[in-house]
C-alpha cells in the first residue's frame, strides 16, 4: 500500500473531524443553553478545531506540485468541485474562526455571533458536500459509488462526536445532555462503519476494467481493513471507558481520538489506493 496521497489523507480526515465537531458543538451553542462563562469555557478548547483545520490546509498544499500557485485552485469556482471545496473550506475556516475569536474576546452582540455561527455551520456542511463531489468522478469506478459519501460522512460523525466529547470534557461540561448523547451517536456511527466497510470490500469484486481489478489494487486489503476495524473498536471501548472514569477523562478521550485519527487515516489511505479508471 502506497502513501503517495498522504497529504490528502491528512487534509480530508482532519477537516471532516473538525467540521463534525464544530457542527455538533455549534448546535449546542445555538440552543441557547450555553451563556456567558460556560460558553467561553467551551469556546477556549475549541481552538483545537482550528488547529486541526490549519494542519489540514497546510497538508493539502503539500499535495500540489506547485504550492505557490495554490490560489489558482479557485479559478474555476462554480465549475470544478475542487475549486468549490477549497473555497467553501477556506470560508468555513475564516468565518468559523472569526466566530471563535469574537466569542473569545466577547465582542459584538450574541445575536450577531449566532448568525455568524449558523453561517459557518452551513458552510461546513457545504464544504463536506464539495469534498464528496471531488471524488465522485464518473471515470473512476472504485470511487464513484455510494460508499464514498457514506465513508466521508461517517468520518465526520465519528471524529466529530469524539472530538466534541473531548472538548466538552476539557471544558468541564461533561454532564450536558449533548455530552451524554455523543457516545451513542459515536457508537452507532462506528457500528455502521464496521458494517459498510465489509459491504464495501465485497462490492470491489464487481469492479474491473480490461487490465485492472479493484480487488488486486491493494495487497492485503482485508488484513488492513481488519486492523482499521480493530482500531475503531478500541476507540469505542476507550471512549466508553473514559466516560466512566472521571479522573483522567480528557486524557483517555484524547488517546481515543488519536486512535480514531489513525483508524480513519488508514481507511482513507486504503480509499486513495483504490483509485483506478474505467480504462487504462
Amino acid at each position: 500500500m502506497g502513501w503517495h496521497e498522504f497529504p490528502l489523507v491528512i487534509f480530508t480526515v482532519l477537516a471532516q473531524c473538525a467540521v463534525g465537531a464544530f457542527i455538533l458543538l455549534g448546535a449546542l451553542m445555538l440552543t441557547g443553553r450555553l451563556e456567558g462563562a460556560s460558553l467561553r469555557r467551551l469556546n477556549r478548547p475549541m481552538l483545537i478545531i482550528w488547529i486541526l483545520m490549519g494542519v489540514a490546509f497546510a497538508a493539502s498544499t503539500l499535495h500540489l506540485g506547485s504550492p505557490l500557485r495554490a490560489p489558482n485552485a479557485l479559478l474555476r469556482l462554480g465549475s470544478s468541485w475542487l475549486s468549490n471545496e477549497i473555497f467553501l473550506g477556506s470560508l468555513f475556516f475564516a468565518l468559523g474562526g472569526l466566530f471563535w475569536l469574537l466569542t473569545l474576546l466577547d465582542k459584538v452582540s450574541p445575536l450577531l455571533r449566532k448568525v455568524l455561527l449558523s453561517i459557518a455551520m452551513l458552510l461546513g456542511v457545504a464544504f463536506m458536500y464539495a469534498t464528496i463531489h471531488v471524488y465522485m468522478i464518473p471515470t473512476v469506478p472504485t470511487w464513484n459509488t455510494p460508499f464514498t459519501p457514506l465513508g466521508f460522512f461517517l468520518t465526520s460523525v465519528m471524529g466529530g462526536a469524539l472530538l466534541a466529547q473531548l472538548l466538552l470534557s476539557l471544558s468541564g461540561q461533561g454532564q450536558r445532555l449533548l455530552a451524554q448523547l455523543l457516545p451513542w451517536l459515536g457508537a452507532l456511527a462506528i457500528v455502521v462503519a464496521l458494517g459498510t466497510s465489509v459491504a464495501h470490500a465485497m462490492s470491489l469484486a464487481g469492479i474491473q476494467s480490461a487490465i485492472q481489478s479493484a480487488v488486486d489494487l491493494v495487497p492485503h486489503y482485508q488484513s488492513l481493513l481488519i486492523i482499521r476495524l480493530a482500531l475503531l473498536a478500541t476507540v469505542l471501548a476507550l471512549w466508553l471507558f473514559a466516560l466512566r472514569s472521571m479522573r483522567h477523562q480528557p486524557l483517555v478521550l484524547c488517546a481515543s481520538f488519536v486512535l480514531l485519527l489513525a483508524a480513519e487515516m488508514l481507511g482513507r489511505n486504503l480509499f486513495y489506493n483504490l483509485h483506478m479508471t474505467a480504462g487504462l
Partner: peptide, 16 residues
Amino acid sequence: DTCIGCKSCAMACPYG
C-alpha cells in the same frame, strides 16, 4: 503557467 499540479486530471482521465 497556470497548472498547480494537483493531479486531478490524471485521476479522472481513463486513458492515462
